[in-house]
């Protein structure tokens, strides 16, 4: 094999030797870097710059040449509020509703996700029966397309869905009748577990959006935490056992502190991904009812590409504000990472 490769590589080397002789060693590095820089610039930097320029323009034309420069008007429009905690007092109430929904969603989703992922990872790290099977089961939803996830859950939760059918059946069983007897005997009301319209009730729609998102992504974070748990040296646990440490103390004093760097990665990844939530929830509720599950990415999409007129400038400005938040989150991650590495 090497006999074949070596002559080919020698052949390829000839022009580069020539180039190095002409340009010198420091400059030859650029010969290798320039193609990559050009491609990266074209597909990564240029869109970012264009997005920023769009954010400073107005009108409904898509071509930059036809769009008037309006300075920071789009940003002013988005940020203008009498009271930032009440969307109704904001000029663009839809933007602020999306901001609040996203904040609440990310807080709940990330919190529950890490709690469940950690619990699952701790269980799967033990020597339980069919461990490989359960690891696959928890990871399986990660492999599904977000739209498939949304449609499957919509099928379960719609008015005529499986969950309501189950609840209606349950409502007619002896169990509910017996429980109703107990509650009425205690002076309460009879128990009624009939199905409701889960997707058209704002609170339930939000709850299920969080639930589905946790269900769909938990496997990924479980896997990362599991890898972190397996990286903790066995002898530390053996020493703890010899010292007579309880399971709870071992968890608190050994597992969690040693898992902290991995948890940090999981936290930041989950936060960034949570802020970017769109496809699953959009396919599940369409952002409704009203704006109950409209998140920031959907706002950006609808202003720029689905609404009428298409406000590309406003959409670009909102995406820049979102980018600022994501950059701050990433900076925090880097800072915390550095701090934990430095000890």
């Amino acid at each position: 094999m090497l006999r074949v490769i070596t002559p080919v590589m020698n052949l390829i080397e000839i022009p580069f030797r020539g180039a190095q002789r002409m340009l010198g060693v420091p400059l030859i590095a650029w010969v290798f870097l320039v193609p990559n820089i050009l491609l990266f610039g074209l597909f990564a930097f240029l869109p970012v710059i264009l997005n920023f320029v769009y954010g400073l323009t107005g009108g409904t034309n898509v071509l930059l040449a036809d769009r008037p420069y309006i300075g920071a008007q789009n940003f002013n429009y988005l940020l203008s509020c009498d009271n930032h905690f009440d969307p109704n007092t904001c000029r663009d109430d839809k933007f602020w509703r999306a901001v609040y929904n996203t904040t609440l969603f990310v807080t709940l989703q990330v919190g529950f996700m890490i709690a469940f992922a950690l619990t699952t990872a701790l269980i799967l790290n033990r020597d339980i029966r069919a461990r490989g099977f359960f690891r696959s089961v928890f990871f399986f939803p990660v492999l599904l397309s977000p739209v498939v996830v949304a449609l499957v859950w919509k099928w379960i939760l719609q008015r005529e869905g499986i969950l309501n059918a189950f609840l209606d059946w349950l409502n007619q069983t002896w169990l509910i009748a017996a429980l109703s007897g107990v509650t009425t005997a205690l002076g309460g009301e009879a128990l009624d577990v009939r199905g409701i319209s889960w997707i058209t009730d704002a609170d339930w729609a939000f709850f299920w959006s969080v639930f589905i998102s946790v269900w769909a992504h938990m496997g990924f974070y479980t896997l990362i935490l599991l890898a972190g748990l397996q990286a903790i040296p066995r002898d530390v646990y053996e020493a703890a056992t010899m010292d007579g440490a309880s399971a709870w103390r071992t968890l608190r004093r050994i597992t969690l502190p040693l898992l902290a760097p991995t948890m940090l990665v999981v936290l930041i990844l989950a936060l960034i991904k949570g802020v970017q939530t769109f496809d699953e929830v959009y396919a599940f509720t369409g952002g409704g009812p009203g704006t109950a599950t409209t998140f920031i990415i959907q706002y950006i999409y609808e202003e720029g590409f689905a609404g009428q007129p298409r406000l590309y400038g406003l959409s670009a400005a909102a995406s820049i504000l979102l980018a600022v938040v994501l950059v701050v989150l990433t900076a925090i991650q880097l800072w915390l990472n550095r701090r934990s590495v430095d000890g």
Binding site: T200, G286, P289, G290, T291, A306
Partner: peptide
């Protein structure tokens, strides 16, 4: 029926 006008967000047709 609440499911139609209350069943989506944005300007999506239902």
């Amino acid at each position: 029926a609440q499911d139609v006008w209350g069943g989506a967000g944005g300007s999506t047709m239902v």
